[in-house]
């Protein structure tokens, strides 16, 4: 495993830790999109179907379990926890996320690395992850006071995607057989979605002012 991949996984993990810190410790999910969190739970459930079939490494298995458990527990907290769910900004989290699922499934049936159940579900999870951040970005645009933890959460998620692209470039040159067009194209699309956010995040950090996205 190269350094970009490890750094990418660590920023991904860090984003989850930041979000859990906000939810578990501060008991708030203000500014967090439940729709995005539900999509991520679905992404991990679809992608990690091979969890108990293919053993890759202990690291791989543990990380998969962490992402599965954390994504489902975040959804649980936002829907069911007595205090946390009251902080959920339902009125602004209006993105019709269900409409993302079917097109991603259709695309996965058409474009996959192999027409088997697990490969189609893998491609589906890749496509869905690429667009899963959209409800969150829309909610951020509508949020007046974006708190630091929410901003950091989205920043780390975006950083994870950038690092994965660097990881693919590295792997392309060091592992001649490593060609995964599906994840590369979807990953680049996914990263581009963060471009606007990154711009405003870095500007707010540079100018030491509160993060706010223009509507």
């Amino acid at each position: 495993m190269n350094a970009f991949r490890l750094a990418g996984d660590m920023t991904h993990l860090l984003s989850v830790v930041v979000l859990l810190l906000k939810i578990h410790t501060i008991k708030s999910c203000a500014g967090i999109s439940l729709k995005t969190q539900e999509l991520y739970a679905l992404v991990f459930a679809a992608r990690y179907l091979d969890l108990f079939i293919h053993f890759i490494s202990l690291y791989n298995t543990v990380m998969k379990l962490v992402f599965l458990a954390s994504s489902f527990s975040i959804v649980w907290y936002m829907r069911r926890h007595k205090i946390v769910r009251r902080t959920y900004d339902k009125d602004h989290d209006t993105f019709r996320h269900h409409f993302l699922v079917l097109p991603c499934l259709a695309l996965a049936l058409l474009i996959n690395e192999r027409f088997t159940f697990r490969e189609v579900m893998w491609a589906f999870s890749i496509y869905l992850e690429a667009v899963a951040i959209l409800p969150q970005l829309v909610l951020l645009q509508r949020t007046r006071n974006i708190d630091n933890l929410t901003g950091q959460y989205v920043f780390f998620l975006g950083a994870y995607r950038v690092l994965y692209i660097l990881n693919w470039i590295y792997r392309y040159f060091t592992e001649p057989h490593f060609v995964h067009w599906i994840s590369w194209v979807a990953g680049i699309v996914q990263t581009l979605l963060y471009a606007d956010f990154f711009y405003y995040y870095i500007m707010s950090w540079k100018n030491n002012v509160k993060l706010e996205l223009p509507a």
Partner: peptide, 10 residues
């Protein structure tokens, strides 16, 4: 012929 490799990324 290149076979798709196992998905070893997260």
């Amino acid at each position: 012929d290149l076979e798709p490799e196992a998905h070893d990324e997260l």
